[in-house]
Design a protein around this nucleic acid. Structure first.
Lengths: 369, 369
DNA sequence: CTGAAAGCGCTAACAG
DNA sequence: CTGTTAGCGCTTTCAG
């Protein structure tokens, strides 16, 4: 008879919740079993259990079987963090992902791609929303570091990430997504914002527009700056005076964008075409144009895709980013660093793609004010 | 002079990466500082550092200041997991969230609500996508348990969650969201699927429809069963023969739903109204109706909201769930359990709400086949 | 108010 | 092939 059979969990429960009695094998089901419990039950030493659990060599098949049975019967789950305390590589097999908000299609796609890459390596992913708040960013990074994540992937909300320098020096891989780092040097994966914005602008110009408006996010967000620059540069190349092109910044949600659009058409010389530099802004613009019943005569190209954009009337023409590729590349970069890649910080630029669906192909029509 | 000032990080680096030299205070910036390093640098014992870091009482203001300075100068971040090894409550201040896919509006909203509730308590959130795969569910639960999460919130993908029983017995709070548990008893937070489906169906019937079709998810998903039941029950109440109402199941994405809809209108006696029981199915149906140019004469009510549903033409009438409330309530339940709530498992039902936008109010029109 | 010693669950480094 | 001892970074316990 193996030691296993007569050590089955007894239905006996002590009165108090505490396990005060010192049974060699703790069969009371409420206590979380440790490696020692498994070892005693299997009649082997703890190190042997450790070998079996970690799939290390030099254990006889019979012993493996005994240990596995004991572990299963106790419903044993090893404590990853306890192991990491002593383990040579000290890896927690955990990643931290910081995004604008997990409740946002772009972030969701990045997250999913990161998760897929992580899953293949047995790595779990912490996610945290920052709402573009620099303080939340620092707090979240600290919270993850205390949990000893192996690496960080972040859409930064702060203007300067110098606070990450000590951690970077310790070798923790940090990959910036969507926005470039400032104050530190590290890998980043971003869309080609300037080129994408220029592409959108050129598209509108090629359809005959000369009076184009830019509606975008806060100017202190680098990504927004780049898109604005792409827009203005392209106007310049087309010989359109950039001075009087309406440029509205500081928009960060549907409502502010909607109101800004309404104001734009309430002023003199409204534009015949709009470039909206962010997906929530695009949606706000669409709402406003609908309200004004101008959605079929004001051209619109948005940066970043909009859910169900192909089902709207007109379809929303966008410069689409590839959030899934961004997430995948970021995760690959983190893992490459963890695998020892010491090459200089890389800056991966993911191309954007113009998706013509109707709104961007509308010809200019003089406002009937 | 305090011990701090002459122990500033030296720019000297050893040749090898390894910290082989035994300096009492490790000033080499590459090594991760421990509480001991902070203690030595501040000239106090480790327990005092522990007290300061954890905000425990009985430390003089001067000592607190010294320790804080030392910790900051070393950029020290305490190791939460090492502490938990010995700590009485053993809480990792970490939660595991399992959903269909983090790349999904419903899951995103649940996630965000859980995160908000968790943030207020200093709890970090692991997220994992299951893709309705029972094996992924078990693997993800195990991965989280090994990382010793304090609680689990899950949209189950498996038919039976009996495998969770031992963990439940150990007192780990588990809250099911969106889908009820089977094989175990635990808290759950779900939408009122049957009532919501009945509401949608009644709405269509009240607009004169007698030939309604049901398009839904896999029949082995309880949620889908409940919605189907709500639909059929309501037909029965209205005296409509349920026998020949088209009921298409097993749809799980836009494409399968689109094809199923096309097939429906290719057959005899197509419906004048459709109830689609899931958001991706709703989108597939909309695409098909557009293709057939029937979107303005076939009524449609979807279960669960669709992004930008109000901007489509016609607007998409839906029975909206409240994913944010579901996530918030689930998190509150987990924290109540962690705070010692021992009351019987609760089943929280979140009401749904009919949102009329046009597609559900279309009158029946005989097919011009 | 402070610190030394023991121990949490596990793995490294040796013995056998 | 297997077990023993020490120690990871921290908190507990207990003694100043």
């Amino acid at each position: 008879m193996t030691p296993l059979s007569d050590a089955e969990p007894t239905p006996v429960e002590t009165a108090a919740g505490r396990t005060d009695e010192s049974l060699p094998v703790d069969a009371r089901s409420r206590a979380r079993p440790t490696m020692r419990h498994v070892a005693t039950l299997a009649g082997v030493g703890v190190k042997t259990v450790s070998r079996v659990i970690n799939g290390e060599p030099n254990v006889s098949a019979a012993t493996i079987e005994r240990v596995m049975r004991a572990a299963r019967s106790l419903d044993y789950e090893p404590d990853l963090h306890a192991g990491n305390l002593r383990r040579a590589d000290g890896r927690t097999r955990t990643l931290g992902l910081l995004v604008g908000s997990v409740d946002n299609p772009f972030a969701g796609a990045v997250h999913r791609a990161v998760e897929d890459a992580a899953l293949a390596r047995g790595v779990a992913v912490f996610a945290s929303s920052l709402d573009d708040d620099p303080e939340r960013e620092q707090a979240a990074v600290s919270a993850f570091l205390r949990r000893r994540v192996d690496g960080l992937i972040l859409t930064t909300a702060s203007e300067d990430q110098a606070y990450l320098a000590p951690e970077l020096r310790r070798g923790t891989p940090v990959v910036f997504v969507d926005r470039q780092p400032a104050g530190v040097t590290s890998d980043s994966v971003v869309s080609d914002n300037t080129a994408g914005a220029a592409l959108a602008t050129r598209h509108l110009i090629s359809h005959g527009h000369r009076r184009l408006a830019y509606l975008g996010d806060r100017h202190d967000i680098r990504t927004a700056q780049e898109r604005r620059r792409g827009f203005l540069d392209e106007l310049g190349r087309a010989g359109i005076a950039t001075g009087d092109a309406p440029v509205v910044e500081g928009l960060h949600d549907e409502e502010t964008a909607r109101l800004a659009t309404l104001a734009l058409f309430d002023a003199d010389e409204p534009p015949t075409a709009i470039f909206s530099a962010q997906n929530l802004v695009t949606i706000g613009v669409i709402r406003a144009l609908r309200e004004l019943d101008r959605h079929l005569d004001v051209a619109l190209v948005g940066f970043d895709d909009v859910p169900l954009g192909d089902l709207l009337v007109p379809g929303v023409t966008v410069v689409a980013q590839d959030p899934h590729a961004i997430g995948r590349l970021a995760a690959e970069r983190v893992f490459a660093r963890l695998d020892g890649d010491e090459s200089p910080a890389e800056r991966i630029i993911v191309p954007t793609r113009l998706v013509e669906r109707g709104s961007g192909e509308l010809p200019p029509r003089v406002s009937a004010r």
